[in-house]
Every structure is written in structure tokens, then in C-alpha cells.
Design a binder for these strands. Structure first.
Lengths: 398, 398
DNA sequence: CCATTAAACTCGTCTCACGAGCATAAAGGA
DNA sequence: TCCTTTATGCTCGTGAGACGAGTTTAATGG
């Protein structure tokens, strides 16, 4: 379907130059290990076009081909791989206590290259350490690096960190992470990127509309449509934790009243137990699940929390109508620890007509790697465009 | 940006056949009265291409050209219009008490052709009456009709009406509205389509991400990204009224607890006044605004309702990050009647970092015509595609 | 009435994909 | 072992769509 209010697309032949090539590269990304014959079939390409396109891409070091294992009669085809001197992106995941820096070829699988812990609350130090790592990777891969994407446990607007309860940061400038001028630096919220990764490679693969929800400190998540997170006007979409689904009497550190955040993470469990707010809601929540084994009061507190979580999920399903819901971080253990309470609240919160075939609510499958995969994905999205390939081709000819 | 999880796009030349033509037609839709020279500039088309494309489209009765008023020196250009024998779509708006049937040419402006009231609660009768009207229009326009779209005040899933509190309907089969076999019949929720129209032609024109919220019986609305409503997996997205933002003790007719629906429409005002639930919350709410003039109790009840509405809007802004919020139906009069309460609740409910530059909350500008415009828009979206133009061209050559 | 200006028209060229026909590399049967 | 079958890759002529340089046209304004 056309996008009649989108920016005026240019129609020039220049923009058709990479049509077939991009389709092939996308297919390669989506199905690692795909054969050339398969790609041609899927894209309804003639064998002539397939020959021409793969030859061009091989020439430009955008892919390489190796003989495929024979599957029967007929001339054997080839498997398409990223080229050993092809473009790469750097993906960074900046979490509460540590960070990881990975490299991904155009198949989108990040391979962790460096990692480190940061006890420090000083953003400048963390940024400096991560920046060093990025620069080392950039030195190693040189011109092959075409973009850098950072997943950060923070609210991100217009590509900049605005605040982070998890990290204890206010606005932080991450532009120092760019290892070279002119290299695109993309910054995204970690839960948003994890959701994108789940929708592309994980539990929600294939779903047109997927909802990802994660609990760490508060709630994060995103609605993903056709592999792209609904980012909102400033990039801060998916802050479901700040819907007033919680206790209207409680003031959230974000400034609003009744945020769902306060009703589902470790702070909620502590409140139900009459204990003081935990310094680190994440580890407190994990510990509570262990304590619940032998302690009925803790079990009950966990159950009430799971119930509040299920009720909110039901509301989000009502409002957004996802085809599947994936749970990340503490969300899945919480649901598992009080499965009945969660399920009851979920069903009770659904509109009646949705109860016959509600969307599956499943555990995220990429675990801790989701955000890293998502960062690699958005970085590659940037590289695998007409403009990106134009730039790459300009560097790789003549 | 590519859509890496979307269906495998075909790459064949066949799909490039209409590239330029579609871009020109889209431009024509977006800016009624544009000149050919303007379109060429905007799309970065060479004058040669513009000549070629417009000639082809004229030949196919997809557009016509008339001399433009001279604006200065130079050879005068032409204004692009829908062709008098070009394709049209039928747009239907099926509301609580009446219906309208309109015809739109490819500029997307629906012109009402027939209308009627339906006191009847019997869906079959209503569908029959509307179907007759559609058939009459179809008879008049013949093969020019390429699609029919129906905006209906009901929950729609997979293109079918599931239920409607407003109309008092359960599942209703609207396929009888199709005036001819093979003609696409698109069915959409009225608030969703009104939101799409606001984002394309109305108050939210130009916004990448827009939130439309309307109050009739309960709350309807949609998030619109680049002109396309986020429809969800089954097409029932945008049911924000069934987020549990209301009183958790109240059971909604939908089956869930605490729905926002109950906190913002006429039922909420009645409850605050200690009056019994109104039979028709819409007219009750309108009447309440009039009563509020001279009655402090009513004013207070309206204020509390506006406050609950503002709080919910704030939550939706937090969660979805729209660039603008448009208010339709009773939402705007409610906000206007208790502007201070609404604004205070809105601000108080926003995350702190959003308060500096919150998205504008404005009245929808298309009024009662929004849904009709939206229906025409999605019908045209269907017609103005490669496949749609292929079909049209097949009927108009040789 | 002619210079100026902006736009339309003409036409040769380019690029990309198609598709028919041919070449190639395997499996399987005689 | 050789030939047939099968699936695929390669070659090359064709066609569509857009470009862009050069030319023509229709207006304004001095």
C-alpha cells in the first residue's frame, strides 16, 4: 500500500538502481544460509537477473557465494554469505552495570567483540570507556564500518538520552561514541530495540504487529509493526510504564501519578510486603521470587504484582491489538512465578470478544541479546538503503 | 527504510511500471490543484518524464489537465485534475442514527450522494437500505467504481463487524454492501478512519505520528503513522477506551474492569451527579454541558470527567509519543467546557521531561466528515496501487 | 515587437530486469 | 560408464521507464 502522506518519494531512475540488489540483501538478512536459487524463486526473479545481481554484489564485496550442499538432482546452487571484506556495523548495548560492543555483518548477527562493567555513576567515564572500545573496533575494521547503533537503558528522544532511572543519568551526550565523523550514530532505547529484534528474529518473528514488554526498573517495551518499532514523534514511544494503570495515589519519579511502572517491578512487591522501596528493584524482584518458594506472604505479594501486570497487558492488548506479546527481563519470571494470577487478570481484563482467541503471550527468546540484535538491525537498516549502497559503491570502485 | 520483515517484495519490472505514475497521482491527491510543473519539481522529475507520465495518465483517463492561471512570465503550466471518466470509490459512513453514501474521485474528496436515517435496531434492514444506495451509485458510475469502503461505528476485526455498543449490534455481516462481485469492500472503524483523515487532510496533516481520540459512546481513536492507522493484528487497534484507566471497581459492558470508556463519556457525568446511567450517553453528555452553565454540581461533574479524560490523554502521550493529538466527537466540547481541569490533569499526568514541549492537543477539523474522508482514503489506497492501476489499464485499452 | 522567462516537447541514451535459448553440474538408471 | 533427467547458471537481445540536452512554445514586460 502506498503511504500517501509520507515524504514525496523521488522517482528518479537513480532510486531504482538498487531495487533488486536490496531485495536480495534483505532476503539474505532474513534467512541466513539462503541459496541463490531460493532467493530468485522468492523474489520472482529470472535466473538472468539473479546472475546479474549476485555478480554485481560480489564485485562490490557485498556478498560471497559458496557451493551449497546438493539436495537432489540438478545443477547445485550456491549459498549467499556476507562478504569477508563487506560492510559491517557496530552494535553497543549499554546496560545498568555493564556494556557490550559487537560487530555484525550484513546478516545482522552481532558477535560480541568487547565488554566491560561500569560500577561508575559518572556518565562521562562510561561513555569514554565505551567510546574507546568502539574506536578499537573501528580501527580493526576500518572502512568496513558503516554505522554504529547504541541500545541504552534510558529514555531516548531525537537520538539523545534524556534520562535514565536505571542508570541514574540525566541527559547524556552520546555523540562521543561515534568513532569517525560522518559515520551514522543511532541511539535507541534498549527495550524498544529488543522488541524489534524479537519481532524480526525472536519469538514474534513473522507477526505483523507484535507487542514487546519488559520489566527491569519499571516497564519498557514497544509496539512493532512489520519489523519497525513505532517510535513516536520524538522517538520516545513505548513508555507503557507511564500509562496510569497503577495506584492513582502514588507519584512516580517521572513526575506523573499512578504509573504502571510502580505496580509491576520490585517496588510493587516491596510495597505489598510493607518493606521499604528497594535500592535496586531488579535484584530485589529476583530475590523475591526465590523467597516466595517458602514464604506465603511473599508469594501473595508476587501474585498481586503479577495480577497487576496481567491486567495492564490485557489493557494494552485491548488498545493495540497485537498478534503476539513477548515478555522480556523480569516480566517472564514474574508471569511464570504466579501463572494463575497473571492469566486470571489477563483474561478478566480482555474485552469479551477478544477472549475466544487472545494473542499468545510468550517469553522473549533472545534473552539478554535482544537489544544488541535490535541495535545491529537498525544500524543495518541504515546501511542497506539506496544511499548507503551508493556510498559503499563509491568507496569500492575505480 | 526497508521493511525487513515485510512480505517479500517482488522486484520485477512489472512493479516498476507505475512508479512514476503513482507518485504523480499521490501528489495530486495530497495537494488538490497542484500544477504539473509543481509536481515535477517536488518529485524531482525531468520535464521529459513529466510529459511522458501525464500523457500516459491522460490516455488512461486517470487525470485531466486544464490551463493554470498564469503566475508570471513563462509558458503557463497546467493544473492536474481527476479525469471526468476516471476511477471513483464509494465511501459509506454508518453512524448511530443515520448513514451517508458518498463518491470520491482520485483526489479523495467525498461528495455525498445519498443519505438516510435508521431508527431501526435491525442490522439486516440497515444493511439492506445502505446496500440499495450503494447499488444505485454503482449503477450510475458503472465500471468507474473501483472500491467501496465503509466506516462503521463498531468494533471491526478482519474486515467484519464484531460488536457495537453504539449501534446495539453484535456481529453483523456487511459483505452484502458490495454492489458487484470482485469489487473490494473495505470495512473500518469510524474513529480509526476519522483519525486517518485528520492525519492526512485535517488538523494533524503533516505529522508523522498523530493520535486521534474521540468520545461518543465510550472512547474511540487511533494512532496514525505516516497516514496509515496502526490497525493491529486483527484490525481492532485503537480501542483506547478499554485500557483500564478508569475506576477499577466498575465493570464495563465489554467485559473488562475499569475501562476508560466509563470515565469519560455521558455515563461518567451521570455517575458523578448520582444520576442513573443515561440511555444515550452522547446526547446526555451534550445536554450536561448546557446544564453546566448554571449549575455548579453539573459543572463539577463535567470538570471531574474532563480531568479523567486529560489524565488518560497524558498517559497515551507518555506511552505513544504522538506529535499531535486531535480530539473528535464529544472530546473537544468536553475539553473546552472544563479547559482548566483538563489542562491541569494533562500536565500532571505527563512525564516530567515531556512537559517542556508537550504535543499540541487540538480539535479535529473535519468534524462529522472525518470518517467519510477516511473511508474514501483507504478505498483509494487500494485503487492507487500497481495492481489497481494494472486492472484499470486492462479495462481501458485496446 | 522583441527580449526574457518558464515550461512543454522531442529524442537519443542509460539502466535494470525480463525471458528464451544454451551451457553446466549434479543424480539416477541402463 | 554413458546417457538421460533435472535444476540451475550464463548469455544476450528486448523493452520499459526515466534522464537530460536541445528545441519549441506561450506567456510577460520593456
Amino acid at each position: 500500500m502506498a503511504s500517501p502522506t509520507g515524504r514525496a518519494r523521488s522517482v528518479r531512475a537513480r532510486d531504482a538502481r538498487w531495487r533488486g540488489a536490496l531485495a536480495v540483501l534483505d532476503e539474505m538478512r532474513r534467512r541466513p544460509g539462503v541459496t541463490r536459487a531460493d532467493v530468485a524463486r522468492r523474489l520472482a526473479l529470472s535466473t538472468g537477473s539473479a546472475t546479474e545481481i549476485t555478480a554485481r554484489l560480489r564485485e562490490l564485496a557485498l556478498l560471497s557465494e559458496t557451493p551449497a550442499a546438493a539436495t537432489g538432482r540438478g545443477r547445485p546452487t550456491t549459498v549467499l554469505h556476507p562478504h569477508p571484506r563487506g560492510p559491517v556495523v557496530i552494535a553497543v548495548d549499554l546496560r545498568q552495570e555493564d556494556w557490550r560492543c559487537a560487530v555484525a555483518e550484513i546478516d545482522g548477527r552481532p558477535r560480541v567483540s568487547e565488554e566491560g562493567r561500569h560500577g561508575s555513576r559518572h556518565p562521562a567515564k562510561v561513555v569514554a570507556a565505551v567510546g574507546e572500545a568502539v574506536r578499537r573496533v573501528h580501527d580493526r575494521f576500518g572502512g568496513r564500518v558503516r554505522a554504529v547503533a547504541v541500545a541504552v537503558a534510558a529514555t531516548v528522544r531525537h537520538g539523545a538520552v534524556v534520562q535514565s532511572a536505571t542508570l541514574g543519568w540525566d541527559a547524556v551526550d552520546l555523540t562521543g561514541l561515534a568513532p569517525a565523523p560522518g559515520l551514522p550514530l543511532l541511539v535507541g532505547n534498549d527495550a524498544t530495540l529488543a522488541g524489534a529484534a524479537e519481532a524480526r528474529y525472536g519469538a514474534a518473528a513473522g507477526a505483523g504487529t507484535a507487542l514487546h514488554v519488559t520489566i527491569e526498573v519499571g516497564v519498557g517495551g514497544t509496539l512493532v509493526v512489520d519489523g519497525l518499532p513505532i517510535e513516536g514523534a520524538t522517538g520516545a514511544g513505548g513508555e507503557f510504564g507511564h500509562l496510569p494503570l497503577g495506584d492513582p495515589a502514588l507519584r512516580c519519579p517521572c513526575g506523573a501519578l499512578g504509573c504502571w511502572d510502580l505496580a509491576v517491578d520490585g517496588r510493587a512487591i516491596a510495597r505489598h510486603l510493607g518493606e521499604p522501596p528497594p535500592r535496586d528493584p531488579r535484584s530485589y524482584a529476583q530475590a523475591a521470587l526465590a523467597r516466595a518458594e517458602g514464604d506465603a506472604a511473599v508469594r501473595s505479594a508476587v501474585g498481586r504484582t503479577a495480577s497487576g501486570f496481567g491486567r495492564g497487558i490485557a489493557g494494552l492488548i485491548n488498545a493495540l491489538d497485537p498478534g503476539i506479546v513477548t515478555l522480556g527481563g523480569f516480566a517472564e519470571p514474574l508471569r511464570a512465578a504466579a501463572a494463575e494470577e497473571f492469566a486470571a487478570a489477563l483474561t478478566d481484563g480482555l474485552m469479551r470478544f477478544r477472549r475466544a482467541d487472545p494473542p499468545p503471550v510468550v517469553a522473549a527468546t533472545l534473552g539478554d541479546d535482544g537489544a544488541l540484535h535490535g541495535a545491529a538491525a537498525i544500524a543495518l537498516d541504515r546501511v542497506l538503503t539506496e544511499e548507503g549502497l551508493d556510498a559503499w559503491a563509491a568507496d569500492h570502485t575505480g
